[in-house]
Amino acid sequence: MARQGGTRIAENERGAEGAASNPLAEAVAARDARALDMVAEAVRHRNVLLAFQPVVTAADQSRTAFWEGLVRVLDETGRVIPAKDFIAAVEETETGRELDCLALERGLRTLAQQPELRLSINMSARSIGYRRWTRTLERGLARDRGIAERLILEIAEAGAMLMPEVVIAFMGALQRRGVSFALDGFGSGSIVLRHFRAFTFDILKIDGQYVRDIHRDADNQVLTRGIVELARQLDMFTVAERVEQAADARVLAEIGVDCLQGHFFAAPTAQPPWAARKGTRRAG
C-alpha cells in the first residue's frame, strides 16, 4: 500500500510539474494576471465609463422602453479592456465591489442629468451590504426622489442564488422606495423554483442562449413561451437578450416577449442620443 501511495504521489508531482511547465497554461495565466492588474489600476484611477444600450418594446421596435448602462474599464491608453478577460475573476474581490460602486455612481449621475431617462445598472449580489456601494446609492436617491422610480438594478441569476434570503430582503426594502429589479440571464444558471417564487423581480431577462437563432429552433421557441407564461403568472415584465437578427425579433414578438435587446437594434455606445443632443446645444 505504501508503495502504491508513493507511486500516486510521484505521478501527481509529475502532473503538477507538467502543468507548471506548460507554455500555453503559463501564457494564459500571465495574460489573466495582467488583465486583473490593469483592471485594479483602472478602478483606482476611476478610468471607468458606462456604455448605453437601448431595450426596445417588442410591439413597436422603434420605441425604447429603457436603457442599460454597461460598465466599461479602460486601460492606460484609453482602450476598453474586454470584460470577458476579467469579469469572472474580479467577482469575488474588492476590485469587483469597487467596480460596482463606480458603475452605480455613473448611472445615478446620468439619471440626475436626464430626468426623462429610465436606466438599468448591473450589480453583484456580493455588493449588498458593501458600505461604499450603499452610501453611493443613498446619496443618489437623496439627490432626487424621482431617481428611485427610474432606476433598475440588474442581478444575475447565479448571483441571486448565492444568498437568496439576503437578496429577497434587499430587494423588498428598495422596491418600497420605488427601485425596480431585473433578473439578468434567466435560464443560464440553476435557480431553485421555490426561491424564484419568493423573489419579487419586476423584470425577467431571458438569456441569449434561448434567443439566438430562435426563429429556426423549435425547442427554444417552446422553452421561451414557457418562460414568458411563467413571468406573466408572477407579474414580471420580460426582456429577450442578445437579439441579433430580424427573424429572431419577429418570433420573439409573436411569442409575447415584452421587450428586446441586442446588436440588431444597437450596440452599446458611450455616446447615447442625449449626449449627442447635449453636444449639439453646446456647439449652437
Rank of each mutant, 00 (worst) to 15 (best):
A51Q: 12
A173Q: 07
Q261N: 05
R34W: 01
A275C: 03
S127Q: 11
G159M: 00
E92D: 13
Q233R: 15
A20M: 14
G5I: 12
R44V: 14
R212D: 00
S180F: 08
P164F: 05
R126V: 05
K278W: 15
L223P: 05
E165Q: 14
T57D: 04
F264Y: 15
R150S: 09
Q114T: 11
L99A: 11
V167H: 01
T77M: 10
P23A: 13
D100Q: 08
V251Y: 04
A270E: 15
R63M: 09
S180I: 05
G284V: 15
Q209G: 08
D32Y: 00
G107N: 06
S124C: 02
V28N: 04
A231W: 00
A249G: 10
A89H: 04
G78A: 08
Q209A: 13
V28W: 02
L234V: 05
R143V: 06
R145K: 08
I168D: 04
A249P: 09
T7F: 09
D85N: 14
G256K: 12
L137T: 10
L153W: 00
L117D: 12
V251M: 12
R250K: 12
T95V: 13
T134H: 09
F66P: 03
R250M: 14
F170A: 12
Q233S: 15
D258H: 15
G96F: 11
V222I: 09
L24A: 04
L74K: 13
D202Y: 01
M171H: 00
N12A: 14
C101H: 11
A125K: 03
T136L: 00
V166K: 10
A169L: 10
F265N: 11
T95N: 02
E17I: 00
E13W: 11
R31P: 06
R131W: 03
S180V: 06
C259I: 05
V43Y: 05
I128M: 10
E229W: 02
P273Y: 06
P115F: 03
Q4M: 14
C101W: 03
F265L: 10
A249T: 11
L151N: 01
G178P: 09
R232T: 00
Q4H: 07
C259F: 04
A247N: 08
V56T: 13
A142H: 14
V192D: 15
A40F: 03
A40H: 06
I147D: 09
H45R: 15
I191Q: 06
L99W: 12
G185W: 03
M161R: 04
A231S: 03
R118A: 10
A58Q: 11
R63A: 14
L102I: 15
S127W: 07
R139S: 13
R150A: 06
T57F: 02
P164T: 13
S127Y: 13
R150Y: 07
Q53A: 04
A218D: 08
W67D: 09
E105H: 09
N47W: 08
L223S: 10
F237A: 01
R277V: 15
M123P: 05
L234F: 15
A30R: 12
F181N: 09
